[in-house]
Nucleic acid binder design. Structure first.
Lengths: 215, 215
DNA sequence: CACCTCCTACTCGTAGACGAGTATACGTAT
DNA sequence: ATACGTATACTCGTCTACGAGTAGGAGGTG
């Protein structure tokens, strides 16, 4: 039902997950997340972490369990999850799992305006992206293999998903590039002409011109 | 090189794209975007639109071309793109195309903590997601087909990409569900036991337990 | 033993994102 | 004629996200 959550930031989910295990102070949460490599896909912003923790407390999802002065170090505030917090946590995960929530992908935004670059440059950039993507895929596949022996599968599906999506994107780009290089992509000539001369060949009408009112 | 842009919001890209065509006032930009269906993947937030326009002006990417009082209506400020704006626009598109910039996908965050739900519920939710995804895919495929006759291909790659990614996600979920239902997913029994009793069977160690310091 | 850097554990100020509100005119049903 | 919804075109205030700063101690080095 995707109802807007009190605490919306994804870091909040990570905090709840960490506290579901055992009480911790914020800095420790960050350390735990980093240790498990979660920060690769979701870098921990300090400001956000403390804001999120404060808000989770405000809404009763977590409470202060104790405030320790460790002799040295500044005072650390240790938080624990509440019953409401556990409910919210599970509920949140449920929503995220069941509802495909599209966050606007930047690449898609770029593709919606890629005509401003000429076909040659677009192809060059796509090739560059593909190279980087392939490297990422190889890298992730290796680390995944490395973990595969140590960790139960259930902790790996996340990485498997990330890998699968990257592979899918790479495959898509590959096929687009293929069309562009073999020339089987229609309107390539028109695109090039428009880009070089600034004028559209008569056989192609862009949606821009269609949409334009003559006022 | 992904240098941090003066105006980072993706709506800024849309504004530059609109103004690259012809001068407009903000409300008209929103109308144009909506007309072209761009708002589906990137809903237009009013506050953000005006903030972004103000910032683009601040950094010299756009300037006020005229301020019209149309007899009726409040005064409309019409903006036009500057030379610097065109440069920034093209440069931005270049970066977005060439550099795979991972925005943290919420689904992945959910998968990283999905063990808090039992296997049965997780499967149910994944099935639900799959149904919704399939519907989306079918829907998008239909509209894409509809446009295919009217619009040059170059304006459709964006939608094609969106479709491909959704299909890939659906396929991935399908195969995961398959493993889970046939029971070929390892540790399924351990997961269920842990979920129901709260205790881990001895043969499985979670990374939690591994990572825990005994202080 | 002075210095330097890294680690711990935050705080604070600011820029950005956004929703809800506002004000005017136009059409249209009553 | 009047009331009511709807499109236009923003403004304003709040809440969030974040980066940069801080400050003490530990631990290593020349």
């Amino acid at each position: 039902m995707v109802r807007r959550r009190k605490v919306n930031n994804m870091l909040g989910l990570a905090v709840l997950a960490a506290l579901a295990e055992r009480p911790m102070h914020p800095y420790e949460m960050a350390a735990v997340l980093r240790e498990r490599g979660k920060d690769e896909d979701m870098p921990i912003k300090w400001g956000t972490l403390y804001t999120v923790v404060r808000n989770l407390e405000k809404y009763g999802f977590i409470t202060v369990s104790e405030s320790v002065r460790d002799g040295s170090h500044p005072e650390r505030t240790i938080y624990q999850i509440t019953r409401e917090g556990r409910v919210e946590f599970a509920d949140w995960v449920r929503d995220l799992l069941a509802e495909p929530q599209r966050e606007q992908p930047k690449f898609m935004a770029a593709l919606s305006v890629w005509q401003v670059l000429g076909p040659e440059e677009a192809m060059r950039l796509l090739r560059q992206r593909l190279t980087l993507l392939d490297a990422e895929v190889a890298d992730r596949r290796t680390t995944l293999m490395g973990y595969a022996g140590d960790l139960p599968r259930i902790f790996l599906v996340e990485s498997e998903y990330g890998l699968a999506m990257r592979e899918a994107e790479a495959a898509w780009i590959r096929s687009l590039l293929d069309e562009l290089t073999t020339g089987s992509f229609p309107d390539l000539g028109a695109w090039r002409e428009w880009y070089e001369t600034g004028r559209l060949p008569s056989e192609v009408r862009s949606p821009t011109e269609r949409g334009e009112q003559s006022d």
